[in-house]
Amino acid sequence: MKDTIDAILKKHIPKEKGNLIPVLQSVQKKKGYISPESVNRISNYFRISRSSIYGVATFYSQFRFNPPGRHSIKICLGTACHVQGGDFILKALQAEIGISPGETTDDMRFDLDRVACLGCCALAPVVMINNKIHSRMSVIKLKELLNKYE
């Protein structure tokens, strides 16, 4: 862990703020997410505070701060899906698996994110699990669907 980060950091000289985003991108690519430990290392290297690194990272939607789960759920909250009750599905889903967007369940079974539009508005509301689109979602359908992913 430490070595991977160190290797990434070593490639990014000078220690300038401008290099922060590329470092974060490499870390995300290598580790799948930005962990508190990585941020500590980066903070010491660049002498930029942890909160400010986190602030920068959360400014971009590309960064995750939790390890990916075995299955990735992306829930669409684009206009069409929103109108068709997407956020109701999201609330139900949050209640079911107990996490908010951006988080991963403790048992690492699921991670959850919201997306803006998956490009199949006709099928709204839409949920994507591991790159597979599930259309015309309802709360009941969703519950059944989740059972298929262990």
Binding site: V39, S49, S51, S52, Y54, G55, T58, F59
Partner: peptide, 14 residues
């Protein structure tokens, strides 16, 4: 620091 983006920007810790 300020964290998050857009409408959700808020003051917060790492």
């Amino acid at each position: 620091d300020f964290v998050q983006r857009g409408n959700s920007v808020i003051v917060g810790t790492a």
